[in-house]
């Protein structure tokens, strides 16, 4: 998938997708992602097995992440170049949102 198409499909993205992409800057498997996201959000987001499986399949199918190795039938994934570009675009969008709410709080 090229960048334009990926941008149309992923920006803006759900919180789930954002945190999964963010976690995969380091290679992780599904359960590892859940633990990492739970830590990042101080326990607010506890991703479920079905949600993780669906999201990883989608991101992998669209080439935003790629499998690396398989340990005990658990595939590990890492973000791709295009995934990183999408993550940066989304980060910039969130930054804009952040500056918009700053005066509000």
């Amino acid at each position: 998938m090229n960048l334009d198409k990926a941008m149309k499909r992923y920006i803006p993205m759900s919180e789930t997708m954002f945190y999964i992409l963010l976690s995969l800057r380091e290679e992780r498997h599904g359960y590892g992602i859940m633990q990492h996201v739970e830590e990042l959000t101080n326990g607010r987001i506890k991703l479920g097995a079905g949600t993780i499986y669906q999201s990883l399949s989608k991101l992998n199918g669209d080439g935003l992440i790629t499998p690396t190795e398989e340990v005990d039938r658990q595939k590990k994934y890492v973000i791709t170049e295009i995934g990183s570009q999408i993550l940066m675009k989304e980060a910039n969008r969130i930054k804009e949102l952040y500056s918009a709410v700053e005066d509000l709080l």
Binding site: G30, M34, G48, A49, Y53, D72, R73, Q74, K75
Partner: peptide
């Protein structure tokens, strides 16, 4: 209980659920 329709599960489908304690 969780019901999940998956017509084309990959190898890690079951393993993902099991790791989460299902």
């Amino acid at each position: 209980y969780v019901v999940d329709l998956n017509a084309f599960p990959t190898k890690e489908y079951k393993e993902t659920y099991r790791q989460f304690g299902w």
